[in-house]
């Protein structure tokens, strides 16, 4: 027997992502899906952001990792609400995991929800978690050809944070090359060179967050 079908393999995830988007829209929550390789500084950027903007926004974090709750503890130390998801080897978060994690939050008390995805530039891009925007995080200790090698992430992201720029004197990272390729992939990509260690460049990112949050609240 032959069964002709056309069924999207990611349909279960995509359907749930649509439901999540509706839920977040009702509560006016800005949701950002943070994607990078391991070690680019997702957790550090979040720690800094959560501390610096503590007085302005009520923020929460969903942390995705293969193992341990180290990141959730680091983030919770800033006073933000944090939930850890352990994927037990899974290389990305999906909508179902987000939905389950949400039971730990009171959505009426959140302005911005950060989803810190598993460190990986490939699979997380394919799984919509109901976010408003993907945020690509790259650091200058990686190759400046990352946008060329992993084009889909940069093509679909709204913002690219280029972290660890305080280390530029010690590495061979060509900022212009990385920027050029990233904007070739996505004309609307906003790039913020920054360092969450020295604090330079953070204000641009914070202003973007303020604008995006105001737009979401309507």
């Amino acid at each position: 027997m032959e069964i002709p079908v056309v069924r999207n393999v990611l349909e279960a995830n995509d359907k749930m992502a649509v439901q999540l988007k509706g839920l977040f829209a009702r509560h006016g929550i800005l949701v950002l899906n943070m994607i990078s390789s391991p070690g680019a500084g997702k957790t550090s950027v979040l720690e800094r952001t959560l501390s610096d903007l503590r007085g302005e926004f009520r923020m929460a974090v969903i942390e995705g990792d293969l193992q341990t709750d180290n990141d959730a503890r680091r983030v919770a130390a800033t006073g933000a609400k944090a939930v850890q998801i352990n994927t037990d080897g899974g290389c990305h978060l999906d909508s179902n995991m987000i939905l389950e994690a949400l039971s730990n939050f009171d959505l009426a008390e959140i302005d911005i929800l950060f989803i810190e995805n598993v460190g990986n530039l490939v699979c997380p891009v394919e799984f919509d978690c109901g976010e408003d925007h993907k945020v690509a995080l790259l650091s200058v200790t990686e190759g400046d050809d990352k946008p060329e090698k992993y084009p889909l992430l940069f093509n679909l992201s709204k913002v690219m944070l280029l972290n660890k720029v305080d280390l530029l004197p010690y590495v061979d990272f060509d900022v212009e090359r990385a920027k050029r390729f990233a904007t070739h992939l996505n004309k609307e990509l906003t790039i913020f060179p920054m360092s969450c260690r020295s604090g330079e460049g953070l204000e641009g990112w914070y202003d973007w967050l303020r604008t995006a949050r105001a737009a979401k609240r309507g």
Binding site: V5, N8, V9
Partner: peptide, 10 residues
């Protein structure tokens, strides 16, 4: 970017 099941024989 498609990813779908197109044909099944059973």
């Amino acid at each position: 970017r498609e990813l779908y099941v197109e044909h099944i024989e059973a």
